[in-house]
């Protein structure tokens, strides 16, 4: 086996197979496992995917939401066991790979058009 094959097989053990296809512009709901003392619970986090980075085991998405008037962005390691679930709430129609321009917009201007051709 070549070096890359071995590394890929190590990564493959940890990749999640049940992930939905996530596009930039989608609104997603992510279940994040949070440790409180000895208890674990799932906290939902919903927002717009404004960027995707890297691939394979290191794939991350940046999810932005406006919470109590303050913009919050969280980066999620998609294949991490800390992420319980990712659900697509709404598909968005955008023309860029990185939606950083949303940071400068407020209110109605942050709306993203919905697209219906993606499952």
């Amino acid at each position: 086996m070549h070096a890359q094959d071995i590394i890929r097989s190590i990564e493959a053990e940890q990749l999640k197979s049940d992930l939905p296809v996530i596009y930039v512009g989608d609104t997603v709901k992510i279940g994040v496992i949070i440790q409180e003392g000895n208890k674990e619970r799932t906290q939902p986090y919903e927002g717009v995917v404004i960027a995707k980075r890297n691939g394979s085991i290191n794939e991350t998405i940046t999810v932005r939401r406006v919470f109590q008037g303050i913009g919050v962005e969280r980066v999620f390691l998609v294949h991490s066991p800390r992420i319980e679930s990712i659900k697509i709430v709404r598909r968005g129609k955008v023309r860029r790979a990185k939606l950083y321009f949303l940071r400068d917009r407020v209110g109605k201007a942050t709306r993203i058009k919905q697209r219906f051709d993606r499952g």
Binding site: A3, I6, I33, I57, N58, L77
Partner: peptide
């Protein structure tokens, strides 16, 4: 032989 780098998750879910 060094093959390369990657990341694995531990029991706590840390990369």
């Amino acid at each position: 032989t060094k093959l390369g780098m990657t990341q694995v998750f531990d029991e706590a879910g840390k990369a």
